[in-house]
Amino acid sequence: MELDIREPEGRISKKAVTVWRLSNTIGHGITLLVFAGLIIAGSRFGWWDWAMTVLWVFGGLTALSAVYSVFIEPVILQRTWRYGADEEFVKLRHGVITVQHQTVPMTKVQYVGLEQGPLLRKFGLYTLTVGTMGSNHSIPALPEQEAKEFRNRIARLAKIREEDE
């Protein structure tokens, strides 16, 4: 039974799927290469059996998680991401296996920022970060126009202060 919490409307860019696929391929690819190198070295130089077993087990697990995080996760994650802000709250909802709903009062927002790594730049996307007193939350992969509008909106709304500070 799903939670009946009114979710925000905003969606992140469809291109996020490609970006995540690329970055996960690179990340997992490097890890797999390291494992492959170790396994080859191990069989050449006759390492202990238990070390080889451990390498095969962890290598296998990495390969499985690579399949999941390259082919399956990006699609679902992109589809399930929602963000939004009204006068009073910034709301986020995301998650594949565990669905997270987050509510941050506008008055508690300390800063908003945009970030762009090389991959995101290639696709013209931005990551928006909302920082509060205690933590920060990121909305990944927003198109430039939306990212800037949303940032300005939050920056304007977050000007109000609470009595207790």
Partner: peptide, 21 residues
């Protein structure tokens, strides 16, 4: 309520099956 600076609700796959969060 006023002292809570962030609230969250989440539901894992298992929790969803049993209607808890």
């Amino acid at each position: 309520r006023e002292k809570v600076i962030e609230a969250s609700a989440s539901q894992s796959w298992l929790q969803k099956r049993f209607g808890v969060a």
